[in-house]
């Protein structure tokens, strides 16, 4: 999920953000509803490959996406294998992985600006119950952008601890990281107001 927008010319890239989101959601839903059998697993995998191959995203991108969620796949597979046996383990893991990588297509092939515009439009129906759609859309997009920054902050805190000879412990990690993250959010809020966001 960390992998952000990659410029390109695939069919996914050319599809407008709104219809693309709907289509991807439908595919993900159908993958989730596949039967928990060997055939179901094979179908899920085939759909995922097709979603990358046919519109021209390429298999290497699929590989990168799978690599990004490798730990999630490993943990799911192991747990299910121990408790549910091989067929259900393989079927469930394949369906989950397929759903993740297909879902990633939206973020991969949609620029943040297009996503922001589509979200603002898509959230319009929620306006009647007082949802500030511009704010919600911005929040979602900014969250994506902040992931690499937060990852870097976390790395800095960990390194500072190691430099002082401390063992890395969650307790001594959480406090400085939280403070840094909150301070960052505070400055970001200032910067957003300064750039004309109400």
């Amino acid at each position: 999920m960390l992998s952000l927008y990659r410029p390109g010319h695939s069919l996914w890239h050319r599809l407008p953000a709104g219809p693309k989101t709907t289509l991807v959601t439908l595919i993900v839903l159908s993958v989730c509803l596949l039967p928990v059998t060997w055939t179901g697993a094979a179908t899920a995998a085939a759909i995922a490959v097709a979603c990358y191959l046919i519109p021209g995203m390429g298999l290497s991108e699929l590989g990168r996406q799978l690599f990004a969620v490798r730990w999630l796949i490993a943990v799911t597979a192991l747990g299910q294998f121990l408790f549910l046996g091989p067929e259900r383990a393989v079927a469930n893991t394949t369906r989950i992985s397929a759903a993740l990588v297909i879902g990633a297509l939206i973020v991969l092939s949609t620029s943040a600006t297009a996503l922001l515009n589509a979200l603002e439009r898509g959230l319009k129906p929620l306006q009647w119950c007082g949802v500030d759609r511009q704010r919600v859309a911005l929040l979602l997009v900014v969250t994506f952008t902040m992931v690499p920054v937060l990852a870097r902050l976390a790395g800095e805190v960990r390194q500072a601890q190691q430099a002082r000879g401390g063992r890395v412990s969650l307790r001594y990690f959480a406090t400085p990281f939280l403070i840094l993250a909150l301070k960052h959010a505070d400055s970001l809020g200032d910067a957003l107001s300064a750039r004309g966001v109400r």
Binding site: Y5, R152, H184, A191
Partner: peptide, 14 residues
């Protein structure tokens, strides 16, 4: 307004 820390001022991914 421009601040010292550019990371806190950049909002979009590109």
């Amino acid at each position: 307004v421009v601040f010292s820390n550019p990371d806190a001022q950049i909002v979009m991914p590109t």
